[in-house]
């Protein structure tokens, strides 16, 4: 076997080791999303506090921020202040809606959580986990941003704090709210 072949084999070997090395530093919990740019699945469910039905369809034409949370989730408590702050920042914009999705939780626990930590927006209950599966959720907190056309534009797994907060407010939501929607139904 000549030198050229030997060099090729060594390069293949190095390539495989490089991939293996890269894999060692990756977050094993991170699952790349396949939903960006796809139609946001519609959902319908009762409001955690009032019991009234909330559906995504009623916010068609608006930028919707969906935040999946649970009362038993520590990281949800970590991000709670930032989430309220985020709502405060955009709540007066007519095209912005924020919805919490209560995931794998007991209703009294969820209600107690909202009373204890406070809330300024509505929260829908995911009764059978169908909503979470439709959105490819595998843990909480997870946050989605849906644009005016009803397409998922952003997904974040983990708490919305620090740089993540800055990124989602300045680079995701603000540009969407300043862009002119193609179709407006409400």
């Amino acid at each position: 076997m000549n030198k050229g072949w030997q060099l090729t084999l060594v390069l293949i070997l190095l390539g495989l080791f490089a991939l293996f090395y890269k894999g060692l530093w990756g977050d094993p919990r991170h699952i790349p999303t396949v939903l960006i740019g796809t139609e946001a699945p519609n959902f319908e469910g009762p409001d955690v506090e009032t019991g009234q039905t909330i559906s995504l369809a009623q916010f068609k034409g608006k930028v919707v921020l969906l935040n999946f949370w649970a009362s038993w989730c520590y990281e949800c408590k970590v991000e709670h202040e930032s989430i309220l702050q985020l709502h405060q920042l955009f709540k007066d914009h007519p095209d912005f809606v924020m919805l919490g999705v209560n995931y794998q939780d007991k209703l009294p626990d969820a209600q107690h959580y909202l009373q204890q930590y406070g809330t300024t927006f509505s929260h829908v209950r995911d009764l059978k986990g169908q909503l979470a599966i439709d959105y490819g959720v595998y843990g909480v907190p997870e946050t989605f941003v849906i644009d005016q056309q009803g397409k998922i534009r952003h997904k974040w797994v983990g708490p919305i704090t620090g740089e993540v907060y800055t990124n989602i407010t300045q680079k995701v939501i603000a540009p969407l709210l300043t862009s002119q929607p193609a179709t407006r139904t409400s």
């Binding site: 699952i31 790349p32 999303t33 396949v34 796809t38 599966i133 439709d134 959105y135 490819g136 595998y138």
Partner: peptide
């Protein structure tokens, strides 16, 4: 399931 979570 593939459309929601990908190949993973």
């Amino acid at each position: 399931f593939l459309s929601r979570y990908g190949d993973y």
